[in-house]
Design a protein around this nucleic acid. Structure first.
Lengths: 359, 359
DNA sequence: TTGTAGGCGTTATCAT
DNA sequence: ATGATAACGCCTACAA
């Protein structure tokens, strides 16, 4: 029961015979891993012909192409991407890094679609703890990914590591002002100003802010913009509660906000999930009418927010455009790594739900 | 400006010199792609020593290991997974296939976590149209993934293709009775019986069923189980509406259900998202009290269903356990492809929310 | 324990 | 247009 010798006739293989590279024809679908040599032998051509035949720009006669394609089909041959990668140094792999929380649920599938369109594949990394980032960076390097899209913040060290290694990196909705890293994002400040302006126009006076985690850059951007605008409009400094971007966090923040003596008439949340939590807490526990007694606004444009139970007033991020832009940008950088770093910022879209009194 | 000759001293390279494989030492962090040869040269050892040093079971003396590790660190060396794959035929890649709709949002991140624990990486495929399946199967084969986890249904042809190629496959929550494919899932029938029993016990008499798409196996399982149980309990045959597993679909189904002359007092939905849609439609448009006038139940255990706005009565699928089981099973099959195919079925957990009158 | 040498399945350069 | 052949970077007998 010796192993079956599937692919003989390699250049310097055991067979000493110099010419006549066509020993006994193969049995179809037998052993594993049919290689280009097997196809070549089966079609009676050289291995390089097979390779060319599967290469986009390869110069092969129609007749030969047909013969090879048929042989390949009969044997069930597909080129081995691994071997190709080894030679070409292009893996067609894009590493996608997402933080476990605070990511729009359909982000991944939208991204996947855009990558597919460009013939790229998605190597997925999700980050729970800081240690995971270390591992992700190490792995994606080992797999020689062509580029990285990150929806999670990365340390300076990791960013520069990627730069040194020449791996293009594009951030989605993270990390703006910092060191030259490519990014696409939503104009959080603008959106937040819209919300505040509308709320103030409608006569709200006592604001409460539900921020995200203190170290979240997105939360900072949104919250600061709101605070700034309130100050510009001459509104009293609002109470600020720091949440964790979750539903539960939103509920808790709302509770805390209404324990104080100065109860807000408008609550501005750093994301939709917390806003939903606020609404539920207001109705369920605090017995407050939304938007009659309190207005609540969020940020993101999550689909649950648009369910009629909440009808959340919020700013929708143009996910499709952002993701497309990120992929475009990444692909451009892969083609020409010398391109200048760039930021693309999209305006959100104000969604006037019924969770806030707007007039 | 000639290209810099980073790694000389390959076995049969240009250099004719037979011995003394240590030409001028390298400049750190210079060119790209530092290889094991570079490290070897830097540390003054053989390339194979470097390789062994990075291989779990490799036999290297502590002294040498230290020297090599240091050299590797200085040069920023990480083994090239691609080259390794080519030789070992193991990619440490697991293909994960999900259908675009109808997937529990945190499924991917849970899965990712479990794969990480085993040192596996996640190659992500999302399926929109039937054509995408074709592409996914082709790609994952080209990348020589070690195994496949699918949360989407696959055609018989694709399943047997994977089998022929010796790629272990585990389904999550799909495709039970069919051809010997490994799967883990939730006991839909049992859960559905629980729901029906409780509803009937509480005195509900007129049922409405909101099913999923007609070709969805999961929907069929859940719906059939509900219908069977109703029949066993002697309840009149309920109206059945076919939805699409979405929120909007749920709303529409609810509307249709209440256009009929026999208005149900209990609506059983094939998933949580549609159940939420039903609740919103009932309250918003039909002005029906939940659960006073109609009871609504779902299936899945989605977190939005548990928000107090809905407090959905449902059956929660034990996602963590299911995913862990799937990974365990897959890893076992990778280790021993001859293992018998197996199905693991977990019981769900009845969640008694307030969307249904249960007594 | 360490070094030598051959091969994994491609692509690409060169003759033909 | 086609066929030989040398890498690509690593792993693993085998020899020392």
């Amino acid at each position: 029961m010796a192993k079956l010798n599937s692919s003989l006739s390699r250049p310097k293989s055991t067979s000493p015979k110099p010419k006549s590279t066509l020993p006994a024809d193969d049995q179809i679908g037998s052993g594993h891993a049919v290689t280009s040599y097997d196809v070549a032998r089966h079609a009676g051509v050289s291995q390089s012909a097979v390779s060319r035949c599967f290469t986009p720009g390869g110069s092969v006669s129609d007749k030969m192409r047909a013969r090879i394609k048929q042989a390949a089909d009969e044997l069930g041959y597909q080129p081995n991407a691994i071997a190709r990668m080894l030679f070409t140094k292009r893996s067609n792999l894009i590493a996608v890094i997402v933080a476990n929380l605070g990511v729009n649920p359909d982000f991944t599938s939208i991204l996947s679609k855009h990558l597919i369109e460009r013939g790229l594949n998605l190597l997925f990394f999700t980050l729970d703890q800081e240690a995971d980032a270390e591992r992700a960076i190490e792995q994606l390097w080992q797999y020689r990914v062509d580029g990285v899209i990150s929806a999670s913040e990365l340390s300076e060290a990791h960013i520069s590591l990627l730069r040194e290694r020449g791996i293009p990196l594009v951030f989605i909705n993270r990390l703006y002002e910092i060191t030259g890293a490519n990014s696409v994002g939503c104009d959080h400040a603008e959106g937040e100003r819209w919300l505040i302006d509308r709320l103030v126009q409608a006569g709200h006076k006592n604001f409460g802010i539900v921020a995200g985690p203190k170290l979240s850059a997105v939360s900072r951007l949104r919250t600061h913009a709101a605070l700034d605008r309130l100050q510009v409009l001459g509104i009293d400094k609002p109470a600020i509660i720091y949440g964790d971007f979750t539903y539960e966090g939103g509920r808790q923040a709302m509770r805390t906000l209404f324990e104080g003596k100065k109860r807000p008439d408008a609550v501005v949340c750093a994301n939709d999930l917390m806003a939903i939590g606020c609404i539920d807490e207001a109705r369920e526990v605090l017995s407050l009418g939304i938007p009659d007694q309190v207005s609540v606004v969020g940020f993101d444009g999550l689909s649950p927010g648009q369910w009629s139970a909440f009808s959340l007033t919020t700013v929708r991020q143009p996910m499709q455009s952002m993701v497309k832009a990120a992929v475009d940008m990444l692909v451009a950088r892969i083609a020409d790594p010398a391109l200048a770093t760039e930021r693309r910022v999209f305006s959100g879209e104000l969604v006037e739900g019924h969770s806030a009194r707007l007039k």
